[in-house]
Amino acid sequence: MISLWRDMNGRGQVAVALAFLVLLFAPVAATRYLLSVLTLILYFVYVGQAWNLMMGYAGQLSLGHALYVGLGGYISAALWVHFGIGPWLGVVPSVAIAAAFGAAIGWLGFRFGIEGVYFSLLTIAFAEFTRIGFDHIGFVGGAGGLFIPYEESRLGEWWNLRGSQVFFYYLAFGMAVLAVLLTALLARSRLGYQWLAIREDETAARALGIDVFRAKMKAVLISSSMTAVGGVFYAFYYNSLFPAQLFDMSRSIELILGPIVGGTGTVFGPVIGAFVLTPLGEILIAVTEKAGINAPGAKAIFFGLILMAIIYLVPTGVWPWLSQRLGFARRRS
């Protein structure tokens, strides 16, 4: 963490400190709508960062991360709805089960040498398989969905994740900050360097004594566990869960757009990505409404076009380009 701070020059430090303070005091001035958008952004920072660890650092392209969001959300919600077990306790089995799924995918993929596109497809297959499975599990409501009841009397029970918009904002803020710090920490750790080596060249990494299988397994386990916590947040923030919504491939894609647009393998890429894409979506909704185009797909078309433009123009992501432009580039001793 300290090294993250030290690696930035004065301008970078000022910018990060300012952004932190603005976000910290945002609820004072922000409207409820703005706060909900910011909450969503911070949620995407969090899950994007979790995915970034696996793809940006360890180089393993998962296109099925919605699986872990869904498992985390569903398990914690089901424990709460059916047994009254609160999310602070429920997060433990949620993470454990999501990590077990991650371990299964990782083991299959890495033991049997399933790489590149094949590995990505394996992750999609698991997510889709689980989605269809949850459609048929009556205990969690099947395709009809699972709902966390809204109870007026519980509203202040923050320990059960029952709270106001401001509460969820700060929760998301805390999670996002922790995710950024964790990424910074891992990026400068022995494990982080092992991941980079594997991302760049697995054979060379192995020749330098790195146990590639173990390092990759750690990446999947950390990433899936983190993402599952995001799922718990999602469940108690939105209170309604549908397999088609949580596990769908479009969810996995949505989750990884931020880090890719912002810049994979960087600490601030997923942050910038989320802060670019989520407001962009909101602005597109507003603009298309203003322009009188009330077709449901119009916003998405613009979104798709902008996505293509970004990946065409700045393929390594907005953050590396931006930090160069604004003079935040790392100075190296």
Partner: peptide, 11 residues
């Protein structure tokens, strides 16, 4: 430790 005939640095 070994080196590779066709070098493989982490580019």
């Amino acid at each position: 430790a070994r080196t590779f005939q066709i070098v493989r640095p982490f580019p």
